[in-house]
């Protein structure tokens, strides 16, 4: 199983999504590039926070595909946060979506979102496929934050600062956009209009 790196911005986006909708299951698409069998996650598109149903998921994917083509970035994975943090197994829909993406994409990683604690400072678990084509949790050592080696508490302090600044109210997923077209599901920084 290949190595995965994740940028700080993507890490913050994934957790902002799960904190903003803390009572719901949330999911989204990971964007980035593949280099020497290392998957580099550089951006994240948050999708939905209520139930994931086919039509709006398709709408989102078609637009993300167009976005990737324009910005020369690749779709490289999927993340999912269960509604119930204590539940060990992934929800059935998450597995189904991951199966679909696995068949469509050249290389893909699947991240489960859990609690941020000492054992798992990033709060993300890479989920790999075993020989029987089932999704099983693999070692968190595969995943690391890009940049220099930071202390294990660094990601947690970053997300805490992020939440305290009230950034969550400015964070929007695709479902928010469907209810209000002025909201930006790409979550680009407001100062620079495009990347």
């Amino acid at each position: 199983m290949s190595e995965i790196t994740i940028s700080l911005q993507s890490f913050l986006k994934i957790h902002s999504h799960s904190f903003k909708y803390c009572t719901n299951a949330v999911n989204g698409i990971l964007l980035g590039y593949v280099e020497k069998s290392v998957l580099n996650i550089t951006d994240v598109i948050p999708l939905s926070h209520s139930m994931t149903l086919l039509p709006m998921f398709e709408v989102a994917l078609i637009q993300i595909e167009a976005y990737c083509k324009i910005n020369q970035i690749e779709m490289i994975g999927y993340y999912y946060a269960n509604e119930n943090t204590f539940e060990k197994d992934l929800e059935p829909i998450a597995k189904r979506v991951a199966d679909k993406l696995y068949n469509e994409l050249n290389s893909m990683c699947f991240l489960g979102v859990t609690e941020i604690n000492e054992d798992n400072p990033l709060g993300l678990i890479p989920i790999g496929r075993n020989n029987e084509n089932q999704w099983v949790k693999s070692s968190i050592k595969q995943l690391r934050l890009t940049g220099d080696k930071q202390s294990p508490s660094y990601p947690k302090s970053m997300i805490q600062a992020h939440v305290k600044d009230g950034k969550l109210t400015q964070f929007n997923d695709f479902e928010d956009y469907l209810n209000n077209p002025t909201l930006d599901w790409l979550n680009r920084p407001s100062s620079s209009s495009s990347q």
Binding site: V59, I62, Q63, A66, Y67, P181, D184
Partner: peptide, 21 residues
């Protein structure tokens, strides 16, 4: 119409959606 009025930066994406469907 809605896209060009409320989120003009998304116009290329929505146009791509309309073309591919």
């Amino acid at each position: 119409q809605i896209t060009s009025k409320y989120s003009p930066t998304k116009l290329p994406l929505v146009t791509a959606f309309i073309n591919s469907t």
